[in-house]
Amino acid sequence: MADLVIEGLTKRFGGVTAVDDVSLHVADGEFVTLLGPSGCGKSTTLAAVAGLDRADGGRIQVGNTVYFDAQRGIYLPPEARGCGLVFQSYALWPHMTVQDNVAFPLTLRKVAGPERRRRIEEVLALVEMERFAKRYPHELSGGQQQRVALARTLVYQPAILLLDEPLSNLDAKLRDRARAWLGELRTRLRLTTIYVTHDQIEALSLSDRVVVMNGGRIAQIGAPQEIYEQPADPFVADFIGTTNFLPARVADATPAGGRALLELADGQRLEATTERAAAAGSRVTVAYRPEQMRIARENGEDTQGTVLRTQITSRAYVGGNWQIGLDLAGTPLRLEARQPPPGDTLRLWLPHAGGILFRGEADVAA
Rank of each mutant, 00 (worst) to 15 (best):
L52A: 07
I240D: 11
L92A: 06
R177D: 14
I74R: 09
T153H: 09
P114S: 03
Y90D: 05
G222C: 11
A125E: 15
D344G: 01
S23I: 07
R135P: 04
R117G: 06
R276H: 12
A316Q: 12
V98W: 09
D3G: 15
Q225V: 10
E128N: 08
Q292I: 01
R209K: 13
I356Y: 00
G63T: 08
S38H: 05
L185V: 10
E139P: 07
S168R: 08
P340F: 11
E298A: 15
G330V: 07
L191P: 06
F235G: 01
Q145P: 09
D252M: 00
G63A: 14
T192P: 02
L328R: 08
L264Y: 09
T285K: 00
P114Y: 06
L270R: 00
R334Q: 13
R109Y: 06
L124V: 06
S141K: 09
D344Q: 13
D252N: 00
E139N: 10
I6K: 06
L124M: 11
A219N: 04
E30M: 11
S38Y: 04
A253L: 00
D238C: 01
L92N: 04
F358I: 07
Q157P: 02
P105C: 07
P78H: 09
A278H: 06
Q88I: 03
D171I: 05
G41N: 05
N101T: 13
R249S: 05
Y136P: 11
E79Q: 15
S168F: 09
R347K: 14
D252P: 00
S38R: 12
L346M: 15
S314G: 05
R190L: 02
M293R: 02
R116Q: 15
V98Y: 11
F13Y: 14
W349P: 03
N214Y: 01
A280C: 03
K42D: 14
G320L: 00
N64D: 15
A178S: 12
V32C: 09
A279Y: 02
T310K: 01
L154K: 05
H138S: 10
A151Y: 03
